[in-house]
Amino acid sequence: MMLLETRALTANYGQFRALFGVDITVAAGECVAIIGANGAGKSTLMRSITGVIRNEAAMVLHRGEPIGALSSAEIMKRGIAMVPEGRRLFASLSVEENLLIGGQARKAPGPWSLEAVYDLFPILRERRKNPGTALSGGQQQMVAIGRALMSNPDLLLCDEISLGLAPVVIRDIYAALPKVREGGAAIVLVEQDIGKALAVADRVYCMMEGRVTLVAKAAEVTREEIHSAYFGVAA
């Protein structure tokens, strides 16, 4: 049984269809990368999995059970947490208060606590009393990841976690992902930096115009295959 599965998943924004029959699977403990150009449907896929966009129940399965029609809150309680593009921290709350909010989302036991998050990102321990939005972009991203981990998810969805960050910060954030997997969580990583994504992923899906155009093992896929799937033309 797969941890997560989408079956012929579609999604619309009003009259505009953004996803066309998308099928993906994620096994327990696996890291799956979703790549594609802007407008390919990657973020829409994340919103559909997390209940921001409602679907037919059987279009999204978690541990074999249909969840496509559930609310975001119900899906989070099941163990699916999201690190959204843009971080979306609470400006009026401190770093520590932002993290504690994540811990209220799910009561399941797990490896992630305040101390565990501070061990993962030590700078947050130093800044724990600072307003969350007063930090640098990279530190805010660490808070967003920590907040999601505080719910002790079995599946962590990361939407463009390196976007707009300095290379040294991206390196530190990516260095934390293996530790997240060691804690038992699978990861779905939406990323435009293909090299970064392939370096940490087990498998990769490429999307273009709302459809999956490539499924491959990250260690075996070629640049030519990615180019063709990414742009719809041969390299």
Rank of each mutant, 00 (worst) to 15 (best):
S94F: 02
V60K: 06
R78D: 06
I80M: 12
G41S: 07
A33M: 09
E74I: 04
G68S: 14
E115L: 13
I53T: 04
N38V: 04
A69R: 05
P109A: 15
L93H: 05
E96D: 08
A81L: 07
A73H: 11
G41I: 00
L61N: 06
L114W: 08
H62P: 00
G110M: 13
L70P: 01
T44M: 06
N55I: 02
K107W: 01
M76E: 02
G36Y: 02
E96Q: 14
G102M: 07
S43Q: 06
A33H: 09
A58I: 01
E56F: 05
K107D: 14
G51N: 09
T50F: 11
A37V: 05
L99Y: 07
K42F: 04
W112K: 10
L89I: 08
H62C: 14
R106S: 15
A108G: 03
G36A: 10
A58K: 11
R87W: 10
A108N: 14
M46T: 04
G86M: 02
W112A: 07
M82R: 13
L100G: 01
E56D: 13
G68Y: 09
G103N: 11
E97N: 06
I101P: 04
V60N: 05
C31D: 02
N55R: 15
A105T: 06
I49S: 05
S71K: 09
S92T: 12
V32A: 08
P84C: 13
G68C: 10
P111W: 11
N38Y: 07
R87S: 06
K107S: 14
I34R: 10
N38Q: 07
A57Q: 02
V83C: 12
